[in-house]
Design a protein around this nucleic acid. Structure first.
Lengths: 203, 203
DNA sequence: TAAAATACCGCACAAATAGGCAGTTGTCAA
DNA sequence: TTGACAACTGCCTATTTGTGCGGTATTTTA
């Protein structure tokens, strides 16, 4: 279906895309024609028809500026809640706990229930996770051995490597200055909030 | 200046906003009128004038669908080009070099000319920058001492710490396994592409 | 209480816009 | 060499759309 574009088609497609991002508005047929020095609206129409046939754009008949990108760069992001405090018992992404939220590219995080958390301390420094980093966490109550998880103990959330052992759980930091945390499995104030699937850092 | 909106104005403002997010297109004056059962375009114009005067929208005269939201809740993210190859001479973000692009929250990267680059190798491992990470780079041709920069040498881009010295530049890795790179300043095939301002990692 | 703002109607007009038909030229593959 | 496709010109039409002028009635503000 979607064959390759010719240079001309690519050029015009790019112009439409840029126009949308710059002016928040798709161009009219004549605007395209003027830009590329075409004196006939039909010249543009031919190209638009080609783009539509090849599946790159959609058009809404009779509507001004009714050009829409199919491979829409418009909705490639998700909004992820940034969790402030984490308290045992309360659901993590309860509205009361959401401090902020930000946009992340869809291809960057797996689908499903994701939240973000700000890392405190440098106990995971040798895993490249630093104080102040934001980790993207996929909500799940269990994890595989060796996964980096967000564990909640009482009212504190901590990022550590997860090692299940007989009757207990070992949470291993990635920093020789810190020792492991051992949790007896029965503890009700302990649970796994999720698995770390991504990281963002401002520098 | 921007006083409160009347219920009617709020209603119409919301409709415009919803229309943009749903149809990726602002409505025409008549579309608004139809929606709210107004038979005169002037009824709509009055409200639009009020919205403009109060600073909620901007209008582009003579242009169809030329309504723009000022407090744009639509644009909390930016699209950053992911640069594939980097070749000396050619402008980095030339279309030929752009491999992909992805959305990033606006609050996450500074404004200005930003591109993303995939890190190869672990020479910056002790700065928490790992093989396969994406770094966000602010385009600039110079940097401060100690900044982490993207330097282009010939056809290769490398991420290192920047130390200007007399008549030359020292690029320092953050990994004891690697030594510094020394560049004589005159070299034309060497330049600073930008400064690393952020990092993203998939895990 | 007067002035300003709000929220409408109705009509008219010009510009902007999409769409259509007929034809030309060059390229490229069957 | 024929035919499909790409990329155009030119001209015409119908619809869409923004804008302008002149109104009315009610509410809010100074």
């Amino acid at each position: 279906m979607s064959r390759e574009l010719t240079p001309r088609q690519r050029e015009i497609y790019d112009f439409i895309r840029d126009n949308i991002t710059t002016n928040h508005l798709p161009p009219t047929i004549r605007e395209i024609g003027e830009k590329f020095g075409m004196s006939s609206t039909n010249s543009v129409r031919d190209v638009l028809n080609a783009l539509q046939r090849k599946g790159f754009i959609k058009r809404r008949a009779g509507i001004s500026r009714g050009i829409e990108l199919t491979h829409s760069h418009t909705e490639e992001y998700r909004t992820i809640p940034l969790v402030g405090r984490i308290a045992a018992g309360a659901p993590i992404t309860a509205i009361e706990n959401i401090e902020d939220s930000f946009a992340v590219d869809k291809t960057f995080v797996p689908s499903g229930d994701i939240f973000a958390l700000r890392v405190q301390g440098d106990s995971m420094k040798d895993a490249g996770i630093y104080d102040g980093d934001f980790v993207m966490v996929k909500k799940q109550s269990s994890a595989d051995r060796g996964d980096i998880v967000v564990a909640v103990i009482g009212d504190e959330a901590t990022v550590k490597r997860f090692y299940p052992e007989k009757g207990r759980v070992r949470l291993e930091p990635e920093n020789p200055d810190y020792g492991p945390i051992i949790i007896e499995k029965k503890l009700p104030q302990f649970y796994i909030a999720g698995k770390v699937v991504g990281l963002m850092r401002r520098m």
